[in-house]
């Protein structure tokens, strides 16, 4: 049935659809609706477990434990809480624990401007933990996509045996749109690995080989291991090559994602749009071929050029960076920023 659904609500519905049975979280706006829905779900269903954690460090580690015990598990937070979870996200990659982390972004750094929308955690979602690791990151821009991509995030987590990040922002999270979630067809990947209590495996954040033996003094092992980790991630990510391309030959190309890709709707008669939905790993082939079709490439984002760095590193050419920061987004503000940037080039 069609009804008004909020972005955060669609995320939660997607998690349930994907088979999630465990949520732990710490309240933080603008993500808290997801925590409240999880509490309500647990009150209704004995198969769904909810824990309001003592802090975000606890929340993500509870999620990791729950996942190892056999539950599909997730948490939701916002920028500062996402930062607190980073160490454990890295551990989840090392120990190979599937889970989903939702970050409904707000203006930072620090406590920032609670809870105005921002896209300031783009690089944090890829580089926030220590060492080299290769997270898959999705970023929806509509309520329907919040639902679909949450399911995709759970699926990718199962396939990659790693934490997958779903980025949102307080605008997308609080967006209400009319959708029929029940009618949306999605594929769900089942849990493959047997739960704890069935073997003699050693799940560790130490570098280890496939038999679980610790390999902390072997540089060549590490080098080959890291390559395999990346290859595996790339293989999984290749099943999720999500993007949107609105062609406008002869015009300039705007690269935008999340809420800003919605705000610029009135400008799309005059600009082409490339919207990466899978933010990481970046859509290298698509970015290279599509940007070649346009004379000028603009990366428009609600941070100071984080994804522009990524794009420049891929397309090997200068892009025009347009930052709309501070949380107030409007077509007028974006138009002004675009005009300024384009006339100063």
């Amino acid at each position: 049935m069609k009804r008004l659904v909020q972005g955060n609500e669609a995320v939660f519905a997607g998690a349930v659809k994907a088979g999630a049975t465990y949520f732990a979280g710490y309240p933080i706006s603008p993500s808290s609706e997801i925590l409240l829905l999880a509490a309500q779900q647990a009150a209704r269903s004995p198969d769904f477990h909810f824990l309001q954690a003592e802090d975000e460090l606890a929340a993500i580690n509870q999620v990791l434990g729950a996942s190892l015990a056999g539950g599909k598990a997730f948490t939701a937070t916002s920028g500062p809480g996402f930062t607190l979870m980073q160490e454990a996200i890295g551990w989840g990659h090392q120990a190979e624990v599937p889970c989903v982390v939702i970050n409904v972004q707000r203006v930072g750094p620090g406590t920032g401007m609670p809870t105005m929308p921002a896209q300031g955690d783009i690089l944090q979602s890829q580089y926030g933990s220590s060492g080299d690791y290769y997270p898959i990151v999705f970023y929806p821009n509509s309520v329907a996509e919040c639902y679909r991509l949450t399911v995709a995030a759970f699926n990718a987590a199962e396939e990659s045996l790693s934490p997958v990040v779903l980025l949102s922002d307080s605008f997308v999270g609080h967006l209400n749109e009319t959708v029929d979630l029940e009618a949306m067809e999605v594929e769900v990947v089942a849990r493959q690995r047997p739960p704890l209590g069935t073997g003699n495996r050693f799940f560790t954040g130490l570098v280890h080989d496939e038999e679980g033996r610790i390999r902390t003094a072997d540089a060549l092992f590490y080098q080959s291991w890291l390559g395999k980790v990346r290859e595996k991630r790339d293989g999984v990510a290749a099943r999720y090559p999500f993007y949107e391309h609105r062609e406008r030959p002869g015009h300039d190309l705007i690269i935008a994602f999340g809420i800003l890709s919605r705000v610029i709707a009135p400008l799309l008669d005059d600009f082409a749009l490339f919207r990466p939905i899978r933010i990481f790993p970046p859509l290298v082939r698509e970015l290279r071929s599509i940007t070649q079709e346009y004379r000028r490439v603009i990366v428009l984002e609600a941070n100071d050029g984080q994804y522009a760095q990524v794009v420049e590193g891929i397309v090997h050419r200068d892009v025009i960076r347009v930052s709309v920061v501070g949380g107030r987004f409007s077509a007028e503000r974006v138009t002004t920023a675009l005009k300024q940037a384009l006339t100063s080039v």
Binding site: Y22, A58, Q62, L68, P195
Partner: peptide, 10 residues
């Protein structure tokens, strides 16, 4: 926290 997540699920 890890142990608590395990215990809640199983």
């Amino acid at each position: 926290p890890v142990a608590q997540g395990i215990k809640m699920v199983n």
